[in-house]
Design a protein around this nucleic acid. Structure first.
Lengths: 349, 349
DNA sequence: AGACAAAATGCAAAGGTTTGCAATTAAAAA
DNA sequence: TTTTTAATTGCAAACCTTTGCATTTTGTCT
């Protein structure tokens, strides 16, 4: 064997890592066909155990990993679930909104557990009419989770028949076509109002935007209970964007508490802002004013006094959404899930 | 023309939507080649304006959208940035952790603005040694953002030379190789301790886990200031998982406040838990005990009393990370960014 | 009308895997 | 040893776009 041969041989053995980029490269090294390598790496029982181990060892050695994109293309699936957050009713609301984030966190946990990746997209429907079809048609996702209907109810309905692998967080309306998971907002609103009244409220202020369907239902429920019990109620439009919200709350409250002694905050984030403002004003809860929030976010239990609120089980919701979605991806059908809200009595009502 | 011909013609015209799945299908309808369609849809100036418009109109009509996966494969890029959240030092900590979520929200906003999608992955390094190479090698992402070094500093260093398109949120250490964006935690720790002492604290308790490098630096900074000023300081290991944390805080505090009158919470979430527990115990801030948090999360300003804390500019951090990453994806180099922390005086110290 | 340049289009390879089917090899049965 | 069956492996098509290069069409200038 000549010196040159030895050298070549050495090169062969210590082939630089990045020279093996494709399954075919690895096949060449292993002395088998590309198909066999593919099967070996997929742990297929079609390939002999010894060959499989050998190939896997080689793959490890060369740091080889099959190209996902090619695999996705061939298999026509991606192992990725899209998560869209439409910011329709409140353009300034950031993804950083607390409720969305909490739900998103649980979704991430659930999806990861089931072996899916999560592709996050913030969409502004007003700025891009076509967002839903675009995301679905991108071919990048096996299914889609939409967090919040915002003002996109109709668009979601349009798409629901043609695209099954979609689950939406939001409010359920009789006979709707898109699969939704959410809390019975109307009932939640009723519970809140009933609690405020039971605690002695003579007039109720609803702080929130009644436009988005979820919040509208909360208000409607509260209205229903209030009317039934003969208590006046009025809505004060409040946005979710932190800065805007704080300003609004600060402007409303001083006048508001003269006429209203019960406050129903459409979300805990608003509730916390109210709490903060009341503290600033030296108003004492729950004697002078009663306050009920909605969501039961982590913050709710940490305020002082802790916030009485209507609980949505966000974690259970996330689990349901993922379950339903996977069932739909597998081609089965699935019904919507409406979860019962729960009154959590704490210090503010 | 026979009735049959007319029928066929009709079918041709009203070709069902889903029969045009590929660029080639559309090319057939438009009477051009696939290449031209591809260029037309990409708004290439190589194709005549009239043809281009016609093709785009057809694409709209048939609801056709080119398959991303195939496009990605061919172009060798995806327009997706990976975001990994390693949960190393605290296995039970959920993605739902407040700080991560806030940072993630800003990242989503930034990346969306720049036209990138965001692929989120929660990783548990202990359970999957190979997480980093896997994500990078997946071929699914053009670049990677890692939120938090956790206990993965060495692994990140290993990878940094071979894979440039990575930016990490975390602590900067002299001479490190991976590109990092973060706050000067050591300085932050010093500011916190100095403030506590200036406010009259005679002994400082640090509540947090000193293992993760970021928190370790915070403690080190506080220690340095305390020693310089002759004040004793001690660390009380506290985890980030909400339930665990609350238990620990509840267990520590009753005994702790006998010996310590200054508390430095490693994060605002811990700070809020402390605040809550102190309120329960009827301890008054900031007379009996002083408390400083870290992060300046949205909650910090909403507690009662509002939390004095060390601010990290999370939004600016997110922007930096995205900027640096895009520069790196484009093949340029970029240095780490260390942002100055800022003491935010509120009601607890 | 012819020559030439420029614009528009077509062709086909490349990107890397997966998988049905055919071909080979190994094992079992005769 | 030969035949039959089962276990492995190889082959090549399919997944769908993009893009360099070649070819055709269009337009301009003599």
């Amino acid at each position: 064997m000549s010196a040159r041969d030895e050298f070549d041989d050495l090169c062969q053995e210590k082939r630089p890592k990045d020279s093996v980029r494709t399954i075919t490269d690895l096949a060449g090294i292993a002395g088998v066909s590309a198909g066999t390598v593919s099967r070996a790496l997929a742990n297929s029982s079609l390939v002999k155990a010894r060959t499989r181990d050998r190939i896997q060892a080689l793959a490890r050695e060369y740091g080889f990993r099959p190209n996902q994109m090619a695999s996705n293309l061939r298999r026509q699936k991606t192992g990725v679930v899209g998560v869209a957050i439409p910011l329709g009713h409140d353009r300034h609301q950031q993804v950083s909104d607390s409720f969305f984030m909490t739900l998103l966190g649980h979704l991430a946990d659930e999806l990861t557990d089931k072996g899916f990746d999560l592709m996050l997209r913030r969409v502004i429907p007003d700025r891009d009419e076509d967002w839903l079809d675009k995301f679905i048609g991108s071919g990048m996702i096996d299914g889609l989770i939409v967090i919040g209907q915002s003002d996109q109810f109709d668009r979601l309905e349009d798409v629901a028949d043609g695209y099954r692998a979609m689950v939406v967080w939001g409010n359920h309306r009789e006979g709707q076509r898109h699969c939704v998971v959410g809390t019975d907002n109307r009932l939640g609103g009723r519970l809140a109002a009933e609690r405020l009244i039971a605690d002695g409220a003579k007039a109720i202020a609803f702080l929130g935007d009644t436009g988005p369907i979820e919040f509208g239902a909360r208000f409607a429920g509260a209205q229903e209970a209030a009317q039934r019990l003969g208590v006046p109620i009025k809505a004060f439009p409040t946005h979710l964007s932190r800065d805007v919200m704080q300003g609004e709350v600060a402007r409303y409250l001083p006048g508001l508490i003269k006429d209203y002694d019960g406050i129903f905050a459409a979300t805990d984030t608003i509730g916390v802002a109210v709490l903060h403002q009341l503290a600033k004003m030296g108003v004492h809860l729950p004697d002078q004013v009663r306050l009920v929030g909605f969501d039961d976010l982590p913050i709710a239990s940490q305020t002082n006094p802790p916030l009485t609120t209507i609980r949505q089980d966000i974690r259970a919701g996330a689990q349901s959404m993922v379950d339903l979605l996977l069932r739909r991806i597998a081609g089965h059908t699935s019904e919507s899930v409406v979860m019962p809200p729960q009154l959590i009595l704490r210090g503010t009502a």
